[in-house]
């Protein structure tokens, strides 16, 4: 049996319209693997929030996903501006989203809180001027 299914996506920072396509591919793969619906749902939300954040706050990046029988690991790595105050950024409703992003319906300041709520593990490495790496692990809670 293969150890994991790995998927990598270059998430384009210039293409707002394409944001979210990586998460829908991951979701499709999870469904095809017969992962439990509750895990598919949480993983799809976490991946989507992370992917959008890379597009609207960090000018794109690379998303890597490793799918194993009982878990999904998502890594989102960008070379954006970094997050100056992580505690503040984690608060519900805090957002620095641009006017353009807000017009598209983003910027409610709910992305990171949702990731925290749905992922079983969330780790954020961020350095001003260097970039941000968000790692999430989601486990099958039915097992």
């Amino acid at each position: 049996m293969p150890d994991a299914i790995r998927m990598t996506f270059n998430v384009d920072g210039d293409d707002f319209a394409a944001a979210g396509t990586a998460s829908s591919e991951v979701k499709r793969a999870l469904k095809q693997l017969g992962m439990p619906p509750e895990l598919v749902k949480r993983a799809a939300i976490c991946m989507y929030e992370g992917e959008i954040n890379m597009v609207i706050h960090a000018d794109g990046g690379v998303a890597s996903v490793a799918i194993r029988p009982g878990s999904v690991e998502i890594e989102l790595r960008d070379r954006g501006p970094g997050i100056p105050d992580l505690e503040l950024a984690m608060q519900e409703g805090y957002s620095t989203a641009s006017e353009q992003a807000r017009n598209l319906g983003f910027g409610a300041g709910m992305g990171l809180p949702n990731m925290k709520r749905y992922a079983d593990e969330l780790k954020i490495d961020t350095k001003i001027g260097v970039g941000t790496t968000v790692t999430m692990v989601l486990r099958d809670r039915t097992r």
Binding site: M1, P2, I5, Q32, L33, G34, M35, I67, P69
Partner: peptide
């Protein structure tokens, strides 16, 4: 949608 009822086989 599932490719196989066994997850290992589905992964393969």
């Amino acid at each position: 949608w599932a490719l196989d009822s066994d997850m290992g086989a589905a992964m393969e």
